[in-house]
Simulated scan of single mutants.
Amino acid sequence: MRKIKKIHKAVHAPMGDLVTYRALPTHEVDYIDPFLFLNHHGPQVYKPGNNGLPFGPHPHRGFETLTFILDGDIMHQDTGGGQDVIEAGGVQWMTAGSGLIHAEVSSEKFKKEGGPLEILQLWFNLPAKHKMAKPNYIGLQKTEIPVVSEDNGKVKVNVISGSWGDTKGPVPSLSNIHMASIELLAGGSLSTTIASDRNIFFYVVRGSIKVNGQTADKLNLVEFANDGEELSIEASEDSYILLGHAKPFNEPVVSHGPFVMNTEEEIHEAFRDYQAGKMGVWK
């Protein structure tokens, strides 16, 4: 079994009236190469006539984002041409690559009617060879994500990228990142193997589970060593987790606000290109 190095509690980091917990980075853990950042928004209930999510137009370069919509919705628009509304159970995967401007806000329907909201956004680094890749956006509704049933239906694995057994995820990852969200009913269990040279991303969104003999509750990020291959998970109550894995890039990470590059000069260049309109012009 993989050894657990440490279990980290996400820190409370509200954004105005948006309940937010940040699991990466914190004072305990900077990043788990190539997993850079995770914000967990909600759960909370918005009243009718609300302003919705606050993420208006802003630029990105050098990495990718994966957004999980558990409750509520997100209306996405970007200067690469991506535009849609993804509802509960769906995901959005955006490759910022060479750079774009995008906005992630609530739909007019959600702002008018209100309702429950819970959303998580995970950032993946891109290796130097893909930092300037062409931007791309993929939005998937719940029905477009393949589901693998385990433990007689007590466990459902939503496969997003990479594969789970013979089931391939619909998102082609530039860096062979495997990502899934996993729903477990109380008492449900799951075993899987992940090559020891791959770093694991493991976050408990809801509930409480035991993984490799240790208890991890909601808002816990589990950091693993690279010494074994087996993961054994059992749900103490109904639970929801994010599970990903990838080979580390072992490259310098230099980040400033919305840009993640390999050198300080590349960060300066990103700001110059953004100001020059090279990441598109917001309309």
Rank of each mutant, 00 (worst) to 15 (best):
A186S: 15
F68D: 09
D30A: 00
A88L: 02
A180P: 00
V254A: 03
S161H: 05
P252T: 10
W282R: 13
H60N: 14
H27R: 09
N212P: 01
L24N: 11
G81C: 05
T20S: 07
L242N: 08
D17G: 13
F37M: 09
V155G: 11
H60W: 14
K168E: 14
I209R: 00
E113A: 07
M94H: 01
M94G: 07
I7D: 04
G97A: 08
A276W: 12
H102I: 03
K156D: 10
G114V: 04
P248H: 01
I209V: 15
W282A: 15
M261G: 07
T215I: 15
P146N: 10
V222I: 10
S107E: 00
P59V: 13
I145F: 08
F55K: 02
T26P: 00
D73F: 00
M179W: 07
K131G: 01
D84Y: 06
E266S: 04
L24W: 14
H58I: 02
T67N: 14
M15K: 12
G81Y: 07
P258K: 11
H58S: 02
G115D: 03
G16E: 00
G277T: 15
G81Q: 06
T65S: 07
N226K: 03
L190M: 12
T143F: 11
A180F: 04
V159T: 13
Q44S: 05
V254Q: 08
H76A: 11
Q121C: 09
A235W: 10
E144V: 11
L70C: 01
L100S: 03
S175C: 05
I32R: 09
H12L: 01
T193Q: 12
G188P: 08
I200D: 02
H41C: 03
I233P: 03
K5Q: 13
M1L: 02
L53A: 04
K156F: 06
L140M: 14
P43K: 13
